[in-house]
Design a protein around this nucleic acid. Structure first.
Lengths: 409, 409
DNA sequence: AAATCGTCTGGAAAGTTAACAGACAGGAGT
DNA sequence: ACTCCTGTCTGTTAACTTTCCAGACGATTT
């Protein structure tokens, strides 16, 4: 820790003001006073200074009450722009926002089987053009993708579904392509981020989000911060060796199978058939089972047993407050499946960790990427701490501090 | 984030000065200037103010160079005292230190089978008396113990070896007994803390310490902070369901055994016998195997296979930078065993996490408890952040900033 | 008339730069 | 070998800067 002169105070107070403006939308000076705790003259001076710097803008007036109309202030969004990309083997989905968090444009394109880089580049360029920008004018780009980038080598591991991306320093290639700074982040991690900001994990400091799919992934949040791991591989539980606890025999190696092999679509469909539920995909198997009856129920219990073995391992290691299930199979299973998993867990581990469904709606990967990019840029531009414990939650008019006693500290 | 007046600046600077004095032992004013970055008059004024408050003390003079002898300053140790307790089923080991970190007294007593609380109380009272204190004059006590306290209920879980402690709010009982604040911390966690401060994990932000023993425990450190878990159960991998990958058959349930059952002393001895190495305890089996030859080698490889399966699970979830092995079996196995575990891991997980032996010497649990207690008290008394990223490392004369240009910032 | 907005004035708290008096070590001069 | 000077370091004091706060004042709107 280092000491500081009055200059440090100014930096602290500027940051506090900018954070308050970002979080609570346009504010009058009096409201800002109430939030950051400065006096009237100090706040006024701060705002005029930030205005001449170009950091904040006047943004209309607020009338209604007694007295003159109050000036509203916002952060100058044009200071920096970010792009968020959801990259799947099928499509590429892009959004561009300014530093204030307002989305400017969106764009969606199919992913070709060849020349992924070229498609990526042209899609970004197109989207940027819609916002009146060139790609290099973007201050940061976050790409959500399956797999995980090893921060040391830049290689994308755990991503067999991304052909042609092996043995390359992916972030470096993308940075060279766009002439901007680029981060590649695991898609499940971004979903977890979004759940933390706007989903079921608001205010939860330690949780795990499980995504059973053709590549089982998990995101681990510890102390409100995403755990990425030394090689980016935290939560990559697809390769976990677990026994198959399902009662029905589907010919799996009982002494220990890859967790992912027990939960991919065909394995789930096979398990369903062993219970007399015929379906072609995991999702339809679960949907059918829910509508059927006792036989379907038996299948769901067995599926919950499989899911629970992996979750039990994770709980034994990190003991989270909450386990969230996401992905189409889990969503199809609904609270019924979540409750079954929770019940199975009680046989396997000591903590009675609640299991819930994720509250993902819309495009969680892309929104998560957007929030991640905003966090990076706000740190760069404003010096705001990147991993804010209280994440940005968008404008919250109702929650702002009452400006009753502006001088109270 | 909130803004602040000049008063905030003073708090920040005071904390910086106190932290520097705690970390770097007695300092002259000029040295302190160099560390915290204040000017000469401000530092001098700060010190005299802290002196009249009773926070710091004059501590001799430093001569030798040109000019007058410089005044040395230290934190006033008498401001607060802490106790650290290593509580095992056999013995109770106590140390008392003041807030500056200097140990005042030590005491060791056998643990009776009955009336554990009474024994605890009298041992603490005795030790405190040696330091001229009464138990309630201790500002905080940290007890290192097997098992983990659930912060919600106060119950000690995962500790079958502590008879009579079930279904009680242990910290509450101990606090009532001593009339002080008491924390009960998992012993392996404290060992990990000590490794982070003075062992092999210095500067390592993310690591896992595995303690194979009759109750296998692990400590998980994420971002330089011990992970305790929502119910205190993080790292309690004894109950992990893992397949037994050992080649020799010892009659274990191949479809999944408790990890702990594969690694307790008798299980290890049994595995050794299956390889023709006869020994009564796990430790002696490993020692014998190391001195023997090919047969011993085969046993060690099989043991490493068993250890690696659990470690692989942990790596898949948190992907640490480093895995440390500790405990008497691991210590007996030495780097040979650590290397074998690392080799086995490469078959099981993607990250090539290094596996090393812990560097524990002396009394790691008790020292860890002491550092933990100091951290708590320093937060209470000085407002220093509890989880300092850079932990206290004791006096470091050589590392102090050169006071060449005191005004440079 | 009452409340509220924005601005202005004077003052308090914290730190910085600069200068000064005194103390000590080491080398130059006798 | 002794004395004395010089350079460096310690600690203090004084004047100035930066930042914020409390209170007052006119203007504006209901």
């Amino acid at each position: 820790m280092r000491a500081g002169s009055p200059r440090l105070l100014r930096e602290i107070n500027d940051r506090a003001a900018i954070e308050a403006l970002l979080r609570n939308g346009p504010l009058t000076r009096a409201e800002l006073e109430g939030i950051i705790g400065l006096s009237k003259p100090a706040t006024a001076q701060l705002l005029t200074r930030l205005e001449t710097e170009g950091t904040v803008l006047r943004n209309g007036l607020r009338g209604g009450g007694r007295g003159p109309r109050a000036q509203l202030w916002t952060v100058n969004g044009a200071l920096a722009h970010v792009a968020a990309v959801d990259l799947t083997p099928d499509t590429i989905d892009i959004a561009i926002a300014d530093i204030s968090g307002t989305t400017l444009t969106e764009h969606r394109a199919p992913m070709p089987k060849t020349d992924v880089l070229e498609a990526f580049h042209s899609a970004i360029t197109k989207t940027a053009a819609q916002a009146g920008l060139t790609p290099d004018a973007l201050h940061h780009v976050v790409v959500g993708s399956p797999g995980a980038v090893d921060p040391a080598t830049g290689r994308l591991n755990y991503a067999p579904h991304m052909p042609g991306w092996e043995n390359k320093n992916i972030p470096e290639e993308l940075e060279a392509l766009l002439d901007t700074s680029v981060t590649v982040e695991n898609d499940v991690n971004l979903v977890a981020l979004e759940e933390m900001i706007a989903g079921r994990a608001i205010g939860v400091k330690d949780f795990v989000l499980l995504w059973p799919a053709d590549a089982v992934g998990a995101a681990v949040v510890v102390n409100g911060v995403l755990l990425r791991g030394a090689t980016g591989g935290a939560g990559e539980i697809d390769a976990l060796q677990v026994p198959d606890h399902a009662h029905a025999d589907t010919g799996t190696e009982r002494t220990g199978s890859r967790y992912g092999d027990l939960l991919d679509s065909t394995a789930i469909a096979r398990l369903a058939r062993a219970h007399g539920v015929s379906a072609r995909t995991g999702r339809s198997a679960v949907e059918k089972a829910l509508s059927e009856g006792p036989a379907g129920r038996e299948f769901l219990v067995d599926l919950a047993r499989r899911i629970a073995t992996g979750v039990a391992n994770v709980i034994a290691v990190v003991d989270p407050e909450l386990v969230l299930l996401s992905g189409e199979v889990a969503q199809a299973g609904g609270t019924t499946l979540a409750d079954l998993v929770a019940a199975e867990l009680r046989h396997l581990v000591v903590p009675r960790t609640p299991v819930q469904l994720a509250l993902v709606t819309g495009k969680p990967v892309r929104s998560g990427a957007l929030h991640s990019a905003l966090s990076v840029v706000r740190e760069q531009v404003f010096g705001l701490p990147a991993a804010t414990t209280e994440p940005f939650r968008g404008p919250q008019r109702d929650e702002r501090a009452a400006p009753t006693s502006p001088s109270a500290r």
